[in-house]
Write a protein that binds this DNA or RNA. Sequence first.
DNA 1: TGTTGGCACTCGCCCGGGGTGAGTGCCAAG
DNA 2: CTTGGCACTCACCCCGGGCGAGTGCCAACA
Lengths: 338, 338
Amino acid sequence: MLSERRLQVLRAIVQDYVGTEEPVGSKALTERHNLGVSPATVRNDMAALEDEGFIAQPHTSAGRIPTDKGYRLFVDKLAGVKPMTPPERRAIQNFLDGAVDLDDVVARTVRLLAQLTRQVAVVQYPSLTRSTVRHVELLSLAPARLMLVLITDTGRVEQRMVDCPAPFGETSLADLRARLNSRVAGRRFTDVPRLVEDLPEAFDIEDRGTVTTVLSTLLEALVEESEERLMIGGTANLTRFGHDFPLTIRPVLEALEEQVVLLKLLGEAGDSGMTVRIGHENAYEGLNSTSVVSVGYGSGGEAVAKLGVVGPTRMDYPGTMGAVRAVARYVGQILAES
Amino acid sequence: MLSERRLQVLRAIVQDYVGTEEPVGSKALTERHNLGVSPATVRNDMAALEDEGFIAQPHTSAGRIPTDKGYRLFVDKLAGVKPMTPPERRAIQNFLDGAVDLDDVVARTVRLLAQLTRQVAVVQYPSLTRSTVRHVELLSLAPARLMLVLITDTGRVEQRMVDCPAPFGETSLADLRARLNSRVAGRRFTDVPRLVEDLPEAFDIEDRGTVTTVLSTLLEALVEESEERLMIGGTANLTRFGHDFPLTIRPVLEALEEQVVLLKLLGEAGDSGMTVRIGHENAYEGLNSTSVVSVGYGSGGEAVAKLGVVGPTRMDYPGTMGAVRAVARYVGQILAES
DNA sequence: TGTTGGCACTCGCCCGGGGTGAGTGCCAAG
DNA sequence: CTTGGCACTCACCCCGGGCGAGTGCCAACA
């Protein structure tokens, strides 16, 4: 096992490297952190750390830089989460409080996260698989043409045209609307199919075709609505990535445009607590030189979606984690209030 | 005035520079384009073009590169719009035909444009100031709490909570719903305020407060809905920008995240026909080293929104313009059909 | 056994200089 | 107005030397 001091050395290396972006040597370390030992001792420790794969040297006769494994150890054992300062907290709250609707909340959250962490922010829209139906509305546009409007408790609206197999009277329509709402209003998306299953049976033969059509359209809309969307921001921060730029940045930009990739990324992260994926721990190849810090957030106790940031593996983990956690917390509050 | 041959020389310079990304010299020009004159002559022409400010040399004893003014002349006088090939047209149509709703149309358009031009694509959502109300729905959620749902003819839906000053009965609600729709359905957004102006007068005193509240909420929603949104894509293409990278790319990424900037950018472009803004012609400073090619598109004859691409001033103008025009045309068709 | 100072060694980086070649401007002749 | 010739300018490449940070090893010491 690694001695206490060696861990301190590793911590010092990570901190210095994150700050300077340059390989850090034994002498500089003893000068900047008062470890109480000589450079020679540190050199021995570094050799040991390198043997274990926690650090590496880019070239012989250069300083050491942390490996993914080194960062992992740092995050797991050596670093805490740096809490936000009270002024920062107030700023977060103020900024989010101005939001007028769900889109705005998400947009503001993205901006905020990007600014606080100076990295790329990713915010998933509150997931709807766990959310509930607030209301279903049916409008008659033409004798055999209806519009179905689905309103969710998170404030999203989805609408669908329905072409009926047969004309559908106003009274039948009102009847269907009432029955539908009494069954599904306030219920979870996932429960809806079961709840409306036997609904056609309550109608006359000639209306059943239309009713089943409406129902299947509704189920379709529910599925589509629970497809997860997300918003990203702060891509300009990618320019602070490093010197080797174009090669690193391109796949990241590509990944960021592929919502599927990002959703998978967030999805893979643990369901509770904060997740940090470092470098090659990310399944997607283009993100092998980045770290992803993500956390679930939600209105009540349970997480309904995730948010996080994407940055270089060389990032300020404690600060980033602090910001991500704080933002998630406040967004949750905002959602609970509305 | 510039002689015919000098214009040819300018055209050749632009074409070569766009292709090679390197300053082009007199000798290379005579070799690659058969101008029928010697390098010395071309040198004289180049000197003249430089005097007029159409080209410049990055360093003494280097070739010439076009200036913004040079590109301007090229676009205005020397280059046509390169039409898409039939296979390309088919590909565009096929790709767009698969779209299922408005969001999907816009998303596909962005992708398509980015791929075709290998640049950053910007597509504005169909503007709603010119569009019409399809339906307004009112739902009663609680005795003094309504939900207002606005549905537009472009298929967008906006919903709003309304807290009533006094309880509002179901019959009044039905009455208001009916009157409201009979007045505004099918009408343009801009006409709505005038059309509902005197509506409160038709109701009992005790209901008027609620009616005016509902109306003002509706007007608010109309304003917000006509706020223009847009979607961008293909940012990964920025990596092909040039060698001096980080400095050029950062302000562009920043501009792309500021929807306000982009909307202004598109808004400034001429209302009909294709607009090309080259380098410093862009008001926004961060885009001084980029060109923006934009065009209006719409379902009928008239343009309802704009789309375009942002790329380096050194871009293939004829090809880009061809792609932009073609995409705009097909998107218009798709919108007209649905 | 762990720590320390000493020491030789490696090697990336900076710097200055010479050679190369593309490209230019000018000029005189056609 | 065009052309060939010619001298000149510079950016670029390559090379070699000096510098210095950093390393690994070792012998001495607590």
